[in-house]
Amino acid sequence: MQKPNRPDTPCVAVCSTTFDEICRGCGRTVDEVAQWVFMSDEEKERIWVRITSQGYPRRNT
């Protein structure tokens, strides 16, 4: 199965975790954002699947 063509990161430069631990721009948790560069491709793909199913990333929050 071919992996989807994705950017290196889901970040859309709309960073806000004001109301909870989830970024309103990319949908990742604070920990996922901090650990992103250390994650395996498989870990990143699991996060991509979750956040896209939830409607992230979003530029207009």
Rank of each mutant, 00 (worst) to 15 (best):
G25F: 09
T52Y: 09
V30S: 11
P10D: 00
A34C: 06
F19S: 06
A34D: 13
S40L: 02
N60M: 05
G55E: 08
G27N: 00
E43H: 07
I47E: 03
S53T: 14
V30A: 07
Q54S: 13
K3L: 09
V33S: 02
E43P: 02
R24E: 14
V30C: 13
W36A: 08
T17N: 13
E43M: 01
V37F: 07
Q35V: 03
C23V: 14
F19I: 11
F19H: 09
R59T: 11
G27M: 02
C15A: 06
P7F: 00
N60T: 03
V14E: 10
T9W: 08
V37P: 09
I22C: 05
P57T: 10
S40N: 00
T17E: 13
C11M: 09
R46K: 15
T18S: 12
E32A: 01
T52H: 02
I47N: 00
E32T: 00
G25D: 06
P10K: 02
M1D: 13
V33L: 12
V37L: 12
S40Q: 10
N5G: 03
I51K: 07
T61F: 12
T17W: 08
E42V: 06
R59S: 05
V12K: 05
G55K: 01
R58H: 04
I51M: 07
K44D: 04
I22T: 15
F38Q: 14
F38I: 01
V14Q: 10
T9H: 09
C15H: 02
E45V: 02
P4T: 07
C23E: 02
P10Q: 12
T18D: 13
S53A: 15
D31Y: 13
E43S: 01
C15Y: 06
R59I: 12
E45T: 13
T29R: 05
S16D: 11
E43W: 03
S53I: 01
E42G: 11
P57C: 00
C26Y: 11
W36G: 10
R50Q: 00
P7H: 01
V37M: 07
A13H: 11
K3V: 01
E43A: 14
V12F: 00
T17Y: 15
I47P: 00
V49A: 13
C26L: 00
C11P: 05
I51W: 07
R6W: 08
I22D: 02
D8K: 14
S40C: 02
P7N: 03
C23M: 02
P10T: 04
E32K: 04
T61K: 14
M1F: 11
V49Y: 04
W36C: 05
A13Y: 09
M1W: 10
E45W: 15
R58M: 13
P10W: 00
V12D: 06
D20F: 04
C15S: 03
C26S: 08
F19N: 11
A34N: 11
Q54W: 10
V37A: 14
T52D: 10
R58I: 03
A34T: 10
D31S: 12
I51V: 15
T29Q: 07
R50Y: 06
I47R: 01
C23D: 15
F19V: 05
K44S: 02
R58W: 06
I22E: 01
